[in-house]
Design a binder for these strands. Structure first.
Lengths: 116, 116
DNA sequence: TCATATACATAGATTTGTGATGTATCACAA
DNA sequence: TTGTGATACATCACAAATCTATGTATATGA
């Protein structure tokens, strides 16, 4: 697993991207999906996930739909109308950040200064 | 600028990568180099940088060479012999993490299950 | 003389994720 | 029927990393 700090700041956009992508998901499902797509390398902890979902909901970025499945309750989350722009912005920022990071740690040689 | 939290966990490997790349650098120079390569998008703060450099030095991963330049002191940092493997591991982890993140937020469709 | 750039450093506050813990249902096996 | 592991939610104390603010000091150019 990754030194946990690498995840910092990325969890929120990851969640928003998955919800944009999949329509609506519940917490446990999000954890599984991220685990699956990352081949077990990114394991979101419940202690991280639920506070994020709750705060995104409090901000009005997410809506919820509770659903009974057997004796258990599932709480589906989906991007709200109002949250769409913010969700896209967060994901875009993450993508941009990743590109910038690439550029910093693996720079293409600058042709202008490549005199030697 | 990025929501500051995105940087978390990436600063140490960024610094180690630059030092591997450039041989030896001093603090102020590192800040400028990252700023330059990121086109002003990543601005490492002194309050972040110096504690990291000090702790990497305390761990024995970095060596220092003080140098007088005019009336000012420069403290050059370089990867120590002992720190080489750890530095490479940290950078490799960051690269791997970035790839995994790509896969999570921008998955290639899985041909096995692409029945519809 | 004053602002800006260079150059280092530290302390307190903030943010975010984890670990630990708790509740509860369901399926399957011993 | 008892226990275990998966499903499914939730909260809180703690740890880790970075930032803000602040401080010192020299060099440079307006």
């Amino acid at each position: 697993m990754y030194s946990k700090e690498l995840l910092k700041g990325t969890l929120k956009p990851i969640i928003l991207q998955l919800l944009s992508d999949q329509g609506r998901m519940y917490g446990y499902e999000l954890v599984q999906k991220v685990k699956e797509r990352s081949e077990g390398k990114i394991l979101i902890k419940e202690g991280s996930l639920y506070p994020i979902l709750h705060s995104l909901r409090a901000e009005g970025i997410l809506d919820t739909e509770a659903q009974q499945v057997g004796g258990r309750t599932r709480k589906y989350y989906l991007i709200s109308q109002k949250g769409k722009a913010q969700a896209e912005a967060a994901v875009a920022e993450l993508r941009d950040f990743m590109e910038t990071l690439q550029q910093v740690i693996h720079p293409k040689p600058d042709p202008h200064h490549a005199s030697s």
